[in-house]
Design a protein around this nucleic acid. Structure first.
Lengths: 363, 363
DNA sequence: GTGAAAGCGCTAACAT
DNA sequence: ATGTTAGCGCTTTCAC
């Protein structure tokens, strides 16, 4: 170590070199400038003469200086950390979304803290509190139900900037969100099913209470059915997409007026339903059609490819971060606090109708 | 606000209340104790009289005090943040692993910072540097190639505690890892294929250079083949599991000595290959068998279920964190620095041979 | 353009 | 059991 430092014996061999001990003060000393100038050379280079900045950077490299973000964060009262709360990563939708979030954040110098809520409002509260303690500058999150969410109310109360992903903000709700138009896109999907000749279409979903998106998609399903004078069937709510949907699907298919098509409110569910159908000896799409929702990459990989309503998942994440960053910037500058009008940002969806959707069998 | 504080006008309306401004000093004042006592009431309750602690906690609740972790971290020189670097979350293997990591970490009061490397060594270095700047106490990570990894060398040099997940540490390498026995488990899987009657078994993998696990599994494949006097076929290395594996598989299946079974070094690949085969008009497992590797949840969902070598993904993550925490604790206490012997922790794998694996067709 | 000095919120010796 | 006092590493007025 180049400079004298008071004896602070490492607690053990194992962290003798942790963080290599070089502070900005050491760099300043080596570059023969003040601590302030050294700091500026990094944070505000335009305030420092070119040659001075160079000296500082050289010294930093020589000493293998690694800035301690903690000090910076504490002092500047902004962490440049964004909190992210997603229901789970085990559904590829959210994993794809994370990719977009990570890319934009790191590219703009923001750090991330990720937590998952497991679709559980109690856990949502706990995880958000956790993020708040880390003093994240803002959050990107997906909640169970944006319309009545303790977590969102709290965030509003504390004036924490956040942007919802997947949850669709109410038109006049004053909240920011990035999603597709859940209801309209679901309606379009079901329209495609109807256009293919289906009349008995069943909706399969997870628990409605766990997902406002599922309810909105259900509404879209009803829109489409009603618009064509078809009776909506009672929704099939599965506890989870893990198992035992077989019995429910089997019972449904045993009846006389059995559906000729299923609209599943997410792709994982759709894949499960297709398997159930196969186990019942039914062929997809020849005997029964299945339409999913999400557009996860895996859907295009399977054979036949999964017909689905495609969301731009990565883009949803990326856009949510960009929007959040814009809000953060607006909050800092005195002008234009309302630069970004609150509201739902709707990204375009697409229909992939092929593979698992075909005309109903002659009956 | 209960106490006087110098005028620090909020930068804008938008963050007037951020962090609600209450500090531990405010709490101490309200509870009529010193700052130190207030701190102890939270961090070391056993050093404080019961009733005093109660007063502090009451005051904290009354003021809606939220500890600022930044201050604590900066001062105590340990962040209680763990860095996590995984190749991608879009492969469910790692998403499942994350679930285990998150659960154990948050339960033990540790925070997480996640980055993905995309199997790219250059990006690995950049992301690790990023984690280091955040002064993470330790890391759980999966690298492309543990045997020659710039990132791991750096971590070793800087004495940063870390535990590998999925990468299997060399027996005498001095590194810590949590994984299954890649080679032995792959060998077992291929043995099962051979036991089912297959003799021409092809291995399908991503780029070997991007994954030491893939190479180890390939070695296991060769072990099994050789042990039965069968000639290993040249490996089919696919650039990615996204697309166009169809041509390669098609060419392979066109030849006379075409394989009757495929061993894919991961489940996603296996699902892709099954689709390719179906598109060629072949039935799985009747015409061709396919064995995967990973045991992602989705594999059990599809029909027929994916035969595969099952890794305990969530447990790999959970165990890696526990091991890391143990090392961290050992480093703090003067005694027993070598409490945890470095080495590869091998978790049990399982074989799920059904569904997509059957006897080869009579030919 | 650069320097001196005052903290950000918290913890940890060291006293008592 | 509790209080006093230094900082952790950095940014940021405020002078010059």
């Amino acid at each position: 170590m180049p400079t004298f430092r008071p004896a602070t014996p490492p607690q053990s061999d194992a962290d003798a070199e942790r963080g290599n001990g070089v502070t900005l003060a050491d760099v300043a000393l080596a570059a023969e400038v003040s601590l302030a100038t050294a700091s500026r050379a990094f944070s505000h280079p335009q305030l420092v003469r070119e040659s001075t900045a160079q000296r500082v950077h050289d010294a930093a490299r020589r000493l293998a200086f690694r800035p301690n973000l903690l000090g910076a964060k504490l002092r500047s009262q902004q962490t440049r950390i964004l909190g992210v709360m997603l229901p789970t990563l085990e559904n590829a939708v959210f994993a794809e979304c994370w990719a977009g979030i990570e890319e934009v954040s790191l590219a703009t110098g923001y750090s991330l803290m990720l937590v998952t809520s497991g679709y559980d409002p109690a856990r949502e509260r706990e995880r958000v509190e956790y993020l708040l303690r880390h003093r994240v500058d803002g959050m990107v999150l997906t909640v169970s139900d944006a319309a009545q969410s303790a977590v969102l109310d709290q965030l509003d109360r504390e004036l924490v900037p956040y942007v919802l992903a997947y949850n669709q903000a109410a038109p006049q709700g004053g909240r920011h969100s990035v999603s597709v138009d859940n209801r309209a896109s679901a309606c379009e999907g079901v329209n495609a099913l109807i256009a293919a000749g289906h009349r008995r279409i069943a909706l399969v979903s997870g628990a409605f209470v766990a997902s406002d998106r599922a309810r909105q998609r259900h509404a879209g399903y009803e829109d489409a059915m009603r618009a064509h004078g078809l009776p909506p069937l009672p929704p099939v709510n599965l506890p989870s997409h893990t198992a035992s949907s077989g019995a429910r699907i089997g019972a449904l298919m045993a009846g006389a007026g059995r559906p000729t098509a299923f609209f599943c409110t997410n792709d994982l569910l759709a894949i499960g339903v297709i398997s159930d159908l196969k186990r019942l000896g039914l062929r997809v799409p020849r005997d029964v059609s299945v339409l999913g929702y999400d557009g996860i990459a895996l859907g295009a990989l399977v054979e036949p490819p999964l017909a689905t309503v495609v969301q731009p998942n990565t883009d949803i994440g990326a856009t949510a971060v960009r929007l959040l960053l814009k809000r953060l910037a607006a909050a800092t500058r005195p002008d234009a606090v309302l630069a970004s009008v609150p509201g739902a940002t709707l990204l375009p969806h697409a229909l992939r109708v092929a593979g698992t959707v075909a005309a109903p069998p002659e009956s």
